[in-house]
Nucleic acid binder design. Structure first.
Length: 841
DNA sequence: CTACTCGCCAAAGGCG
DNA sequence: CGCCTTTGGCGAGTAG
């Protein structure tokens, strides 16, 4: 009897069956379990069985198994439909090839419709068997997996469920299951980090993993089990090592260094370690380390049975264990923004480590040859350790999150780690549709729900978005910021907005219109999307968000709850966006448009209510209002009024000692009572602004954080002018380095794709390319503004004499203008005053 | 997902 | 026709 955490479900082509990888905690290993062979891949079509049976291309197809009649509920039409299930022997017979049944049916019978034919079989299996990846299962001999339900105290469950807005039977049942998924903690799986170095003589040329021509000279292996020392396997003779260097290297002195005279023996040792590893972690392993090792091993004549590295359609993994490529994980935009707060821009080991761990990579040796083997060993092992640290950062936070994402999305760990939020939500939705015997609609059917009717403010956008209230310029003391907690998810739940409820087929529902758009919402059914999103919202806002900050709870529980509330946030923040994303298969523009319209309605009504109460609104954006506090009761009264008139909670988020707004939207500053300064949207804070300007801006903020009274503010203004003046003087006298002057801007696409214009960073990048450097998408280009013909130079090629001082002066002034014009100092005053004052020196 | 700011680019428009 | 100014919009980064 095998019991373990379900890590992944996949299709084993040789055994022709679905298989599962279970993690056995007690033994720290992954066990493969072959699942029920009775379950087969299939698709649905509206061609009747008797007609299908007469199609030789179908019944004669080598993968064809049988046809069955099935009843499904078509949620778009709200009727039951009888369809034909075409069952096949293997997944590729259904889709993925030109000769797959999916294509054959469409070709032979052009008018026919096909559903559910592009779902990956591993996921189809999960839906039909109601498996929840990330949960504990017991494997029976029959090939069935049985969920081991975690115990949750009834009291706790009741308390969490009490936070739900909808308490009907269906909602309670779904919510109970979700609470079960969220309450069971993740196992701490031993992670093995790997990094390899390959011999090269040419600088900056990455060896091709398909060819695997060069020798592997170093393999770093580091385990999250701290009792196991990090290991470095080297292609060298022991006397090649520089013992003195090793003794002084903090990285190498604690490592186990093993030398091999033979590359084959070196690789075989690494493969032996990989064979046993339950969880492999790399940085870019899918594009480099794993394919390189695999191909190199094959080249050296190592038999396939001894190579535990498996190539899948779009990733590399282990035969037994699972592989997580951190490059893929950190490229995930939802994780980047909502979990790591957008702290890194470039997805390189160096940039991510620096942003998250505060550690940078070592500078690589000039040449990767056996002569410099000790230096290579240090470099390689350091990368390995960084990779490991990124994975285990903050008590294994990433692993906890991945488990929660698996459970919520019902995707295997490798799918979660390599695909984005829209795929996660899609899978979550498909799982819920399938379990209810609802027909999963095709993208075309969902698109037929209607078109958008509003016009966006920005050219090229599809529909009108949120309202940004024009700020009242100036400094205001005692300001409250109120906001709707999870506005869009609240709207989705409250107004039941979903692709099946919008513009529904019932004529009785047509009176249930949404303001500003002519769409209506079904009065009869709630919709799947509002059900799930509503529950996720209510339990995050009502329970996990506060529980994660509850100091009375033990540290490990709090850490788990932090992961829970973060993972819920990721799903909730994306729930509105996906409806308007063309890449999402349930893409439904009227849904996205209606959610935005109701958001505008909520903020507009709140504004009116506040005005009617005589409350002064200083600013607002999408889901927030900044108001001048007259008295404590004011805020409470406003909250109550909005709750009773709107049925939504606008809650106090923050109180500012004072705020500074200019006439610009999305551009302000607020100082809290404890002295923390929130700066939003200002150039002085943006990451592409030259460092000397950012630092001057930072000093200005230091002045502002100490301001307590309007009088203080006046004094601070003068000191800020002094700061600008000082920065300007340093600039004019060129007492700045090129690094301090650099604009750091990211290349968002390949150089040759900039067709309409040539922005400055692209000009600089082209100069680097001409010099033979590789400038790939995602790279951050550091350039300075120069007086040369092009006007720019990458810092690598520039000298301080070429700097265009006037341009920098302009940039410095305009950065501070955002701050100072709100304080009554305009651009001209700043310029002239700075210039005049300067003449005295 | 849309809204907004800023600097720059490149095409359009005005002028002699 | 060339020079100069104006202007639309591209691209990056950000707010929510």
């Amino acid at each position: 009897m095998v019991e373990g955490y379900l890590l992944s479900v996949y299709y084993d082509r040789e055994r022709e069956t679905a298989a599962a990888k279970l993690y056995i905690e007690e033994e720290n290993e992954v066990r493969i379990v072959y699942l029920s062979r009775e379950h087969r891949p299939y698709l649905l079509t509206n061609i009747p069985p008797e007609k299908l049976s007469k199609m030789p291309e179908v019944v004669g197809h080598k993968g064809f198994l049988r046809v069955e009649e099935v009843t499904k509920h078509d949620i778009l039409k709200d009727i039951d439909v009888t369809l034909t299930k075409v069952v096949a022997k293997d997944p590729l017979a259904i889709g993925g090839r030109a000769e797959s049944l999916r294509e054959v049916i469409k070709r032979v019978s052009p008018g026919a419709k096909v559903w559910e034919a592009d779902i990956k079989y591993r996921n189809c299996y999960i839906y039909d068997k109601l498996l929840i990846p990330g949960m504990r299962y017991r494997a029976a001999n029959s090939g069935e997996l049985e969920l081991i339900k975690p115990r949750i105290s009834e009291e706790k469950e009741r308390e969490i469920l009490s936070k739900l807005e909808d308490k009907d039977k269906e909602a309670l049942q779904v919510a109970k299951e979700i609470v079960m998924l969220l309450e069971e903690e993740a196992p701490s799986i031993e992670a093995l980090a790997l990094d390899i170095e390959v011999e090269t003589t040419q600088h900056n040329v990455i060896p091709d993993p398909k060819e695997a021509r060069q020798r592997v000279i170093s393999i770093g292996l580091a385990s999250s089990d701290s009792s196991k020392p990090p290991r470095i396997l080297l292609l060298a003779k022991s006397h090649d090592l520089d013992e003195e260097y090793i003794k002084q290297s903090s990285i190498l002195k604690n490592a186990e260094i093993v030398t091999y005279a033979d590359e084959k023996a070196l690789i075989m040792e690494a493969l032996k370690v990989l064979e046993k590893a339950p969880l492999l972690v790399t940085f870019n392993g899918t594009n480099f380390d794993l394919p390189y090792l695999r191909h190199r091993a094959q080249k050296l004549g190592i038999p396939d049975s001894d190579i535990p590295i498996v190539a899948k359609r779009d990733h590399y993994t282990l035969r037994k264990g699972v592989h997580i490529d951190l490059h893929k994980v950190f490229s995930n935009k939802s994780l980047k923004n909502y979990v790591y707060g957008g702290r890194y821009r470039e997805v390189s080991l160096d940039a991510v480590s620096q942003a998250i761990l505060g550690e940078r990579k070592r500078t690589p040796p000039k040449e990767f040859t056996t002569e410099s083997i000790t230096r290579i060993a240090e470099y390689c092992l350091y990368d390995t350790l960084l990779t490991l640290k990124l994975f285990t950062y903050r008590n294994n936070m990433l692993l906890k999150l991945l488990f929660l994402f698996m459970r919520i999305s019902k995707l295997s760990i490798e799918d979660v780690a390599s695909t984005g939020i829209s795929n996660w939500i899609k899978n979550m939705m498909y799982f819920e549709l399938r379990r209810r015997r609802y027909l999963i609609p095709t993208p075309e059917e969902v698109l037929n729900k209607g078109r958008t009717v509003t016009t966006a403010k920005i050219k090229g956008k599809k529909y009108l978005g949120a309202i940004v209230i024009k700020p009242k310029p100036g400094a205001f003391f005692n300001v409250a910021c109120l906001d709707f907690a999870s506005l869009y998810p609240s709207i989705i739940r409250k107004y039941r907005i979903s692709f099946e409820t919008i513009n529904c087929p019932h004529s009785a529902c047509k009176s249930n219109r949404i303001p500003e758009v002519n769409h209506w919402i079904c009065k009869k059914v709630r919709g799947i999307f509002p059900l799930i999103v509503g529950i996720l919202r209510d339990i995050r806002v009502g329970w996990y968000k506060s529980a994660s900050k509850d100091k009375r709870l033990p540290e490990d529980i709090r850490s788990w709850y932090e992961a829970v509330q973060q993972s819920l946030k990721v799903f909730l923040n994306a729930s509105y966006g996906v409806s308007g994303a063309e890449t999402y298969p349930l893409y439904c523009p009227p849904v996205a448009e209606s959610i935005a319209a109701l958001g505008r309605y909520a903020i507009q009504k709140s504004l009116e209510i506040a005005s009617a109460m005589g409350v002064e609104v200083l600013y607002g954006d999408t889901d927030s209002l900044f108001i001048k506090i007259r008295s404590e009761e004011d805020v409470e009264k406003l909250e109550k009024e909005i709750e009773s008139k709107l049925g939504m909670d606008l809650e106090l988020d923050k109180i500012y000692r004072y705020t500074v707004f200019s006439e610009r939207k999305k551009n302000y500053l607020g100082v809290s009572e404890d002295g923390t300064v929130d700066v939003k949207g200002m150039t002085g804070k943006k990451r592409n602004t030259p460092r000397f300007i950012r630092e001057a801006f930072q000093r200005a903020l230091e002045e502002l954080r100490n301001v307590k009274t309007p009088d203080d503010l006046e004094k601070a203004k003068l000191r800020i002018i002094e700061i600008v003046r000082e920065a300007r003087r340093k600039l004019v006298e060129k007492r700045l380095t090129l690094e301090e002057l650099a604009f750091e801007v990211m290349l968002s696409k390949p150089l040759d794709k900039y067709e309409k214009t040539t922005p400055q960073h692209v000009k600089a990048a082209k100069m680097l390319q001409e010099r033979g450097e590789v400038v790939a998408t995602g790279k951050i280009i550091a350039y300075v503004k120069t007086k040369t013909r092009e006007g720019v130079k990458p810092i690598e090629l520039a000298t301080i004499d070429e700097i265009d001082v006037e341009k920098y002066e302009e940039y410095l002034f305009s950065t501070f203008e955002q701050l100072l014009d709100a304080l009554g100092i305009d651009y001209e005053t700043l310029r002239t005053k700075t210039a005049t004052l300067d003449q005295f020196f």
